[in-house]
Simulated scan of single mutants.
Amino acid sequence: METKCDNESNETVPQSDDTNGEPKQEMSKKQMKRLQRHQKWLDSRPEKRRQEKERKKLKAKRLREEGVEVMSRTALKKQYIPMSSSKCKVSVCIDCDFEDYMEEKDMKKLVKQIGRCYAFNRHSSAPVQLYITSVVSKVREVLTKCQPGFTNWDAVCLDSHWTQVFTDKSKIIYLTSDSEDVIPDPKDIVAANDYVFIIGGLVDHNKYKGLSVPYRQAVRHSVRSEG
C-alpha cells in the first residue's frame, strides 16, 4: 500500500558547501519553508512601515480638520514625566519568575506585554514606580532580543526576586484572579501612596489552569493576594 507524503514532511534537502569548503547542515523541507516565510516577512517590513506612516499622516490630517489638536512626537516627549519625579509613589512590579512555565513563544508575548505596560506608564501624567524583577536567564535573553533598549527604560529592571526588593509585607498585594479578596478602595490607595502591587509575568493560555501559580507565589511568601 502506498503512503503519501504531505508538503510539511521532514525530508532533508542537501545544502551546498559553505565558503570554507565544509558541508552545511542539512535542512528539512519544513525548516526551509519556515525560513522562506520569515524572509518574506522581513522583505515586507519596509513597505508595511511606509503604509503605517501614511495611515498616521492621514489620521492626523483628519483630526486637524475636525479641530482636534494633534501633538508631534517631539512635543509628547517634552511632556514625559520621569518616574522619580512622579507624584505617584505606588509601585507596580512585574514578577518574571515563571520561566519554567513558559515556552519561548510565550516569553516573547510576555515581553511584548511588558513593553506595552512600559509605554503606557511612560506617557502617563503620573507614572507609577515600575519594577520588573527576576529578569534572568531565558527571560533576559528574550527581553534583550525583542526589546534591545530596555536597559535605558525609565523603570527598575532587576535580576533579584521581588521579595528581595520589597520588605514591608503589609503593603504588598499580589494581584491574581484566584484570590477571593478584592483590592483596597482606590481612594485608600491614593491616600496611602505606598502600596506595592505584584503582577505575575506569566503567559500560558490557561495551560496551567487550576494550578494558581501566581496565587501560590503569594501564599508561599505570606503576602496578600487580591484580584
Rank of each mutant, 00 (worst) to 15 (best):
V111E: 07
V90L: 03
Y118W: 10
T151S: 13
D168L: 08
S28D: 08
E11M: 06
P46W: 09
D178Q: 09
E180Y: 04
I173W: 00
S137I: 04
T3P: 01
V92N: 06
P46T: 13
S72F: 02
Q129M: 10
D106E: 11
K171Q: 13
I189P: 00
V139G: 00
I173H: 00
L211T: 05
S85G: 02
I172R: 05
A218V: 01
S177Y: 02
V92Y: 13
V128T: 08
S125D: 15
K89M: 01
N7A: 14
K57H: 10
V213M: 13
S9Q: 04
Y131S: 07
V136A: 03
S85A: 14
E141P: 03
K59S: 08
R122G: 04
V136Q: 10
N7L: 13
A126S: 14
E66I: 00
D106H: 11
T133L: 06
T176C: 11
F120N: 10
L58R: 14
R216L: 14
E180I: 02
S212R: 15
K53S: 03
K40N: 07
K48W: 04
Y208G: 00
T151H: 07
V135S: 02
V182T: 08
I81T: 15
G201D: 03
Q31R: 12
C146V: 14
C93D: 12
D43K: 15
E69N: 10
K29D: 01
G115E: 08
S177N: 07
K112Y: 12
Q36E: 13
K187M: 00
S16Q: 08
Q217N: 15
K40C: 03
I183W: 03
A155S: 09
K109R: 15
D17M: 15
T19S: 10
D100G: 03
Y174W: 01
K59N: 07
A192M: 01
D43V: 06
S134C: 09
V13F: 06
V219T: 11
H221V: 07
M102P: 05
D178H: 12
